[in-house]
Design a protein around this nucleic acid. Structure first.
Lengths: 246, 246
DNA sequence: TGGGATTTGTTCGTATGTATT
DNA sequence: GAATACATACGAACAAATCCC
């Protein structure tokens, strides 16, 4: 499809993952210099990345201020889930309308991966795949904008879970996705919507619990683990331009 | 509430208006230098503006390429209306739930302005107010994210109308907004949703008609009319760096 | 297909505004 | 509350890529 820019996307994806896995906790500062140094890109491009993340609601990027990882409020959390509920219902309706047998196989493959990750207690993988299910479903709606909005909502929900949710609250809603698939396959729109809505209720109630405080690691240490495949010629050398300490 | 940055917002708003009123037609190039010169801001900030407009789907901003006014495709147009329909319904449901008498007065004031502009044949004003109604309604839902999404969808619909719609297709759906208000006031959610959905059908069918070709004016001439209150010391002098025409 | 004009991307020095002590 | 440290914003000059003829 459309490859906007490799470098930008790598950094964007890495930062997104770091935020969603709580490695970069809400409120953490994201200085342009430092990010640029780690991803071997100029501040110009870093700004593009931060702007994108800001548009997605993951970072707070007010002018003349250092960008920070967004700190969702309870009100925002409610809003996000409310909108998501409405769009998930629309997704389900559209998918039922366009249903093809291949959809079932695709979704079930994802659910199997999900269960495997859960059994292996790989929290982050599980969390990503659980969200991926909803994004994939939105893709099957055939509406690219709906897919984009859903992707945005899912990531924001993950951030909300990171802030307000309890760490290990992934218990037995493993087969809710499977049940939804079953309803979709029988092309029962009403039931599918009902199941999805109930599912969202479960997710929401477990995501919004209560805040907590922790120590936050230095962004330098964190980014190193998320740098991914940066192929710049001399990324090894930390390009951090030493401040004029004078 | 939050004033992100005056300069940025002025340019953002001006460009948005220029695009929605077809003064800057789809496909028109938006070079950073030229925009920066007109709004007396550096390319750094211009990029922030363009990034924002890109996130809203109004401009196409691929890396290493001159940004252009977005050219919506028919498929995108369908997608936008589909999502908008779903969210408009949600808005109506929420507004009915939180209804207060003051809402009615507020909305009716807007409808009166709308009718006045229509009678005066002020196309652009009418168009803006017609969209404003839906955004205001979304605000009354009490969900800030829903309001943000709706604002985005409404502006994209305006752009779509500019591309695919006929120029003078604003006939007698003047009182559809009024009817919706009536249904809201009687707190009849089902009827309000039905009216809104019908209304969206009318808007969509008139927005998506067929493409057309025209001559496009120079961006320099256009921006001058949209510059608004730029208070920079020497904006009078057109800073347009004259191309080395040789 | 080629070549010149345009325009974005990069860098660095400096200035200005925020935050922190 | 003032001084200092930090980080973004600006401007210009240059390089590189793209567009257009």
């Amino acid at each position: 499809m459309s490859r906007p820019s490799p470098r930008i996307d790598i950094a964007h994806e890495a930062l997104k993952q770091a935020i969603l896995e709580r490695a970069l906790q809400p409120g953490t500062k994201l200085p342009e210099d430092e990010i640029g140094a780690h991803f071997a890109m100029s501040r110009t491009l870093v700004r593009a990345v931060l702007a994108k993340l800001a548009a997605e609601g993951l970072v707070d990027a007010r002018p003349k201020r250092t960008a920070t990882v967004a700190v969702p409020t309870l009100a925002e959390a409610r809003d996000v889930f409310e909108v998501r509920r409405a769009l998930e219902a629309e997704v389900v309706r559209l998918v039922v309308k366009r249903w093809k047998p291949s959809f079932g196989a695709e979704l079930e493959g994802l659910v199997r991966e999900e269960e495997a990750a859960r059994e292996r207690h790989e929290e982050h993988v599980w969390g990503r795949l659980a969200g991926e299910f909803h994004i994939r479903l939105a893709k099957l709606s055939g509406n690219a904008l709906l897919e984009k909005y859903m992707a945005e909502l899912v990531t924001r929900c993950s951030l909300i879970l990171a802030v307000f949710g309890k760490p290990h609250s992934h218990d037995g809603h493993a087969n809710e996705h499977a049940e939804i698939i079953a309803a979709l396959r029988s092309r029962d729109a009403a039931r599918a919507v009902e199941l999805m809505d109930h599912h969202m209720g479960v997710v929401e109630s477990r995501a919004i619990v209560g805040p907590e405080e922790e120590t936050r690691p230095a962004i330098g240490d964190v980014l190193a683990r998320y740098a991914g495949a940066i192929t710049a010629r001399e990324t090894a050398t930390p390009l951090v331009r030493k401040a004029r300490t004078k």
